[in-house]
Nucleic acid binder design. Structure first.
Lengths: 134, 134
DNA sequence: ATTCTTGCAAACCCTTTGCAAGCTA
DNA sequence: TAGCTTGCAAAGGGTTTGCAAGAAT
């Protein structure tokens, strides 16, 4: 009854392998690497695979300022997270925000809203830039 | 010598006025409001204006999870609040977030960042729109 | 009069989808 | 075999750009 509903194909295997390389990359970027690596996987297939992986939480995603989505294999089953970015040098780092997701849907629900999505952005001046007098 | 190089046109004035309404909205959203409000400004013009304003720092921008860019007039340091907005009808309401401000600066400090700023926006589908089947 | 700005439509870019052929289980 | 998957190409959705007509200075 509880049969798996995803079949392991050459393409998916190749994508999973490529992802191990780590790092946030766009679907087109991953696709390019696959092709260069000999895989014949099509772009649509890569998009579909990354999408599926994102839905199951196996890959993390972020959206660039150009609207491009970047994917990265999710280490240690962590979820969607946010960034703290330096307004001077642009350096960014991941930050923990375990409760935001829950908070967001709770606040939404309290107001009768469903399908809540959130945007959380933290910026500041990093230690280095502050030291340099900014 | 240092003549300004932007001319104040009806369209730009209308856009600036609309922006005063506050809140993060997409270019298409702002454009829709302008049109409904009687302005004849074209979509491209709205995009160009928002882009210019973002470059001069007069408007803030964030990118949604769908890759849509949202723009908001940059109010000079007044006590800001957060929004919960319906993605269907645009209805929006302010929400309370007593702990976020503190959380933001604490997280920033933990990473050695100073002058922390944050943007938190929530979107969802309001009860009315959900009822209408969206 | 000059030069910037507008509006429209076409172009772009990333992403998604329809569909027939190919594979996995 | 049954039905998920694939690849291609076309369609989508947001944003940008070329260009001639229209304003602002």
């Amino acid at each position: 009854m509880t049969e798996p509903r995803t079949r392991m194909t050459k393409q998916r295997a190749a994508i999973l392998t490529a992802l191990q390389e780590g790092g946030f990359r766009s679907a087109q970027d991953w696709h390019g690497r696959l092709r260069r690596g000999g895989s014949t996987a099509g772009l649509a297939t890569v998009y579909r695979a990354l999408q599926a992986l994102a839905e199951t939480g196996d890959v993390d995603t972020v959206v660039t300022q150009h609207g491009e989505t970047l994917y990265r294999l999710c280490e240690a089953g962590e979820e969607h997270h946010h960034h703290l970015r330096c307004r001077i040098c642009g350096a960014a780092q991941d930050i923990d925000m375990p409760s935001i997701e829950a908070w967001a849907s709770r606040v939404g629900a309290e107001h009768g809203y469903s399908r809540i999505e959130h945007i959380v952005e933290l910026t500041g001046v990093c230690a280095d830039c502050a030291r340099k007098g900014h």
